[in-house]
């Protein structure tokens, strides 16, 4: 049997060889393929609009305005407080704490049997009804609020909403932006992604793409 120092040396050599192979060479190959063949994807599908970087197609963001009091922004725990901008479609509730202070994503971790979850869902429903209720024909009740508008997403940066959610928000966006409802609905249809292979996942409405299309019409 060989000695332990000899085995240690073999192990060290092996780790170095495998590190160069799996930690440097192969990653560089993948990096090269990504930049050459899928460069938009590899760099995060960043979206430029009127000469400015305004987001990523894959990362949800807040379409909100700062809350002003006496002309100054109101701070909540050091972060400017915001209110949803009624001109635009709104993304799903998020457990990722203020989206504008760093790049951290986190689960909300609301348990199924928790009163805290109940309060959070109630608050989300109330906010959704307050924002959209008066524009929806017949009004909104909790039972009519789509679950994706009441439940927080997993990543906290879900870029999509359900078609059901978009259809309800369409009434408000059309009214506030003075656009024909049919035009808004056409834009939703144009920005709705089908299920993968026809059956995988759920249909999605990409909120950033949709809002940029709205913005082009109103400005």
């Amino acid at each position: 049997m060989r000695t332990v120092p000899h085995d240690l040396l073999t192990a060290l050599r092996a780790m170095l060889v495998f590190t160069v192979l799996c930690g440097i060479l192969v990653p560089l190959v993948v990096f090269g393929v990504g930049q050459a063949a899928f460069s938009a994807n590899a760099n995060g599908q960043l979206v430029h609009y009127r000469g400015h970087l305004v987001g990523s197609n894959l990362i949800g963001q807040n379409f909100a305005d700062p809350v002003l009091r006496h002309g100054r922004p109101v701070l909540a725990a050091g972060v400017p407080e915001t209110t949803p901008d009624p001109r635009f479609f709104q993304t799903r509730p998020s457990g990722t704490t203020p989206a504008d202070n760093d790049a951290a994503t986190t689960f909300a971790n609301y348990g199924p049997n928790s009163t805290i979850t109940l309060q959070a869902i109630r608050a989300n429903i109330a906010a959704y009804i307050a924002l959209n209720g008066r524009y929806v024909p017949g009004g909104l009740t909790a039972a009519k609020v789509p679950v994706d508008a009441a439940d927080t997403s997993a990543s906290g940066v879900d870029p999509d909403i359900s078609p059901a959610n978009a259809a309800l928000q369409a009434y408000r966006v059309a009214a506030v932006d003075h656009l024909p409802l049919a035009r808004v609905r056409a834009l939703i249809a144009a920005n709705t992604g089908a299920r993968g292979l026809g059956i995988l996942g759920e249909p999605t409405v990409n909120v950033l793409e949709l809002n940029l299309a709205i913005d082009r019409m109103i400005k």
Binding site: Y110, I121, I125, A142, K144, A150, T152, D158, P163, E202
Partner: peptide, 22 residues
Amino acid sequence: AGLHTAYVNGAGGNLEGKEQRF
């Protein structure tokens, strides 16, 4: 909370902590 969790037009079930696209 009074939510209606049956499937309607892309949304339904316990979507808490889940992504819309999945």
